[in-house]
């Protein structure tokens, strides 16, 4: 690309070259607001990663400037990471993150594809549209609002499913017992996101050339055979891409789901509800050990980076056009 531009501008007169220069400068000026934002909000914090190698619990009230404060702190090498990996809770929340995401990916995929196929087979188009509208709705709500929806059913004092139902399961109360939370979190996540992925798959299905179905019917294929041999193969690419991209983010949890829905995750629930992102937050704001919080975040970002690079390499093999880079 760059060589092409250089070659074409080199071949033209100097007057052309100067308008080229002007054009590029103007285009650069257009990126300026975004560039400043990216540098300040995205790139500057990357240098903050050094905090994870320092003994830095919280900013000193006496320091006038946070940067000199950080530099004046003692280097502790990998101590913050050591503290992290020596704690048994660490493995728990890392395992939670990966297991929950794996479940979300697999169940989310199966449900969304199944619903998309079912909807595409409906003859009453008005109802099909209505279903889509209803299904997509939860996607637009914040986890704060969703946590109130969950509370309406599970509240220990007034919830629709308080006492009786809970007692029959042998639990004290929803918000005091870790046992039901894996199910609650999975259901909440599927409830909120299935409609959205379903609509993505549906868009892919409606894009399939219908003459293929007609040809299959003439050849005597029944509906199930058509789904198996035409619809699913057409969805293959988008399924693989979305699947791999999600796997690339398997170490990043949806903070709102795990923080808001269990209502701050009181002590009893952490075994089931703690994930990397909530731990990073609690280390930053509740326990207040910025060094450890940064270390966990850094570790998470490295794992995430590797996962995404691997995922992208695979996507490029499957379908080069859909690779991110």
């Amino acid at each position: 690309m760059a060589t092409h531009v250089a070659a074409s501008s080199g071949g033209k007169s100097t007057g052309m070259a100067s308008t080229d220069l002007k054009k590029n400068l103007i285009l650069c000026s257009m990126t300026l607001p975004g560039l400043i934002w990216l540098i300040l909000i995205r790139y500057l914090p990357m240098f903050g990663i050094i905090v994870s190698f320092k003994d830095f619990k919280l900013p000193s009230p006496r320091a006038t400037n946070i940067i000199s404060d950080i530099f004046s702190r003692e280097w502790v090498g990998l101590d913050n990471f050591g503290q992290l990996f020596s704690s048994p809770t660490t493995w728990q929340f890392m395992k939670n993150t990966i297991v929950y995401n794996a479940i979300f990916i697999v169940l989310g995929l199966v449900l969304a594809v199944a619903f998309a196929i079912l909807i595409s087979e409906l003859t009453t188009k008005f109802l099909a549209k209505t279903y889509q509208t209803l299904m997509f709705f939860p996607y637009f709500l914040s986890w704060v609002v969703v946590s109130y929806f969950v509370w309406a059913f599970l509240s220990p004092t007034a919830g629709l499913w308080r006492d009786g139902f809970v007692n029959s399961l042998g639990m004290s109360a929803w918000y005091n017992d870790a046992k039901p939370w894996p199910f609650i979190l999975v259901i909440a996540n599927l409830w909120k996101n299935t409609g959205y992925s379903c609509i993505l798959y549906l868009a892919a299905i409606t894009g399939i050339d219908t003459s293929q179905y007609e040809a299959a019917r003439i050849d005597g294929a029944n509906k199930w055979q058509q789904i198996w041999h035409i619809t699913l193969p057409h969805l293959r690419t988008i399924i693989i891409i979305l699947f791999i991209m999600n796997v690339g983010r398997i170490f990043n949890a949806d903070f709102g789901l795990f923080y808001q829905v269990p209502r701050g995750g009181a002590g009893a629930l952490t075994k089931a509800t703690e994930v990397v992102d909530t731990y990073v937050y609690k280390m930053l704001k509740d326990t207040i050990n910025i060094g450890v919080s940064t270390a966990v975040g850094f570790f998470q970002n490295i794992v995430g980076f590797v996962c995404i690079m691997v995922a992208n390499t695979i996507v490029r093999k499957v379908d080069p056009d859909s690779a991110m880079f």
Partner: peptide, 9 residues
């Protein structure tokens, strides 16, 4: 695909 993380930000 990469960032400083929550605490540095």
């Amino acid at each position: 695909i990469f960032g400083g993380g929550l605490a540095p930000t």
